[in-house]
């Protein structure tokens, strides 16, 4: 009687020779590098593409808060301003329709989308900071997942902490957003800053020193609104659209990230699409 293990051993076939292994290793390494480059590029472009979207959406979706843009004294609450954006020249629905059409032209079916909560953004060295208006946490499609036990954004740790942020069902997870509470205020009254760091994996913990709220404002040279839509997903692909618009409603940049089951990020830069300019 033959052991099943022996049968499987033989059925598994021969091992490849040394030369073939070396060739295969080189090919595997090259594929890995390409995949890494694609992912890095996708994330970087998504971060850079963060040059202009949602001022269009913010004024319509969220109550406007005018913080005046001044940095608050340390420990005295959020200092990232949320200012009145320019009214959009085109309605958001029209822009989304343009996104869908542009994706469809590229052979990407787009199921009905859901709109994530828009975020205010400002540029800072090496990334973009985002602020969430009070009350946005856990509402309007924005939710935060505690990263470390006891250091969750919604916990009692008012001294800071970092966490993952998701906009929509999965949205920003693909961008590797790291979120940091910058306020000493109770959580429900706080604002938050987030820094997009495309090169970093989720789970990177930003130190308090590196994420001062006053830096967000003082060093910011540009600002606007971000929109992220989780366009939906089918059985092996999900669609995330990220866009930025400046407060003056210019320089729209929209990026669609499509991730299939193989972990491949397919980036579609729609920034030049005339339908998406407003």
């Amino acid at each position: 009687m033959t052991e099943l293990r022996d049968l499987l051993e033989r059925a598994a076939g021969p091992e490849v020779s040394g030369g073939d292994v070396a060739t295969a290793v080189g090919a595997d390494l090259a594929r890995g590098r390409r995949a890494l480059r694609r992912r890095t590029t996708a994330r970087a472009v998504a971060g850079v593409a963060v040059v202009g979207a949602l001022a269009l959406v913010v004024p319509r979706v969220l109550p406007t808060v005018d913080g005046g843009g001044d940095a608050g004294p340390a420990g005295q609450g959020p200092s990232v301003s949320v200012t009145q954006g320019q009214p959009p020249e085109r309605p958001a629905a029209e822009v989304y329709a343009g996104v869908e059409a542009a994706l469809a032209e590229r052979g990407l079916a787009v199921p009905p989308h859901t709109t994530g909560s828009p975020l205010r953004w400002t540029t800072v060295d090496g990334g973009l900071w985002f602020s969430l208006p009070p009350g946005a946490v856990g509402a309007g499609g924005v939710e935060m997942t505690p990263l470390l036990p006891g250091k969750g954004l919604r916990g009692d740790n008012h001294g800071g902490g970092s966490g993952e942020m998701a906009v929509g069902p999965q949205g920003l997870h693909t961008l590797g957003l790291v979120l940091q509470r910058v306020s000493q205020q109770p959580v429900e009254d706080a604002e938050y800053c987030a820094l997009i760091q495309p090169e970093r994996q989720l789970g990177y913990e930003v130190t308090d020193e590196s994420i001062r709220s006053d830096t967000c404002v003082q060093r910011g040279v540009d600002s606007g609104t971000l929109f992220v839509t989780e366009s939906g997903s089918d059985w092996n692909t999900r669609y995330v659209t990220v866009g930025l618009v400046r407060d003056d409603a210019t320089a729209v940049s929209v990026t669609a990230t499509v991730e299939d089951d193989f972990g491949t990020d397919v980036l579609v830069d729609l920034a030049q699409d005339p339908r998406l300019r407003w």
């Binding site: 595997d28 390494l29 594929r31 890995g32 590098r33 995949a35 890494l36 992912r39 193989f262 972990g263």
Partner: peptide
Amino acid sequence: TALTKLYL
């Protein structure tokens, strides 16, 4: 596919 994911 598995090795590409592993590399990432």
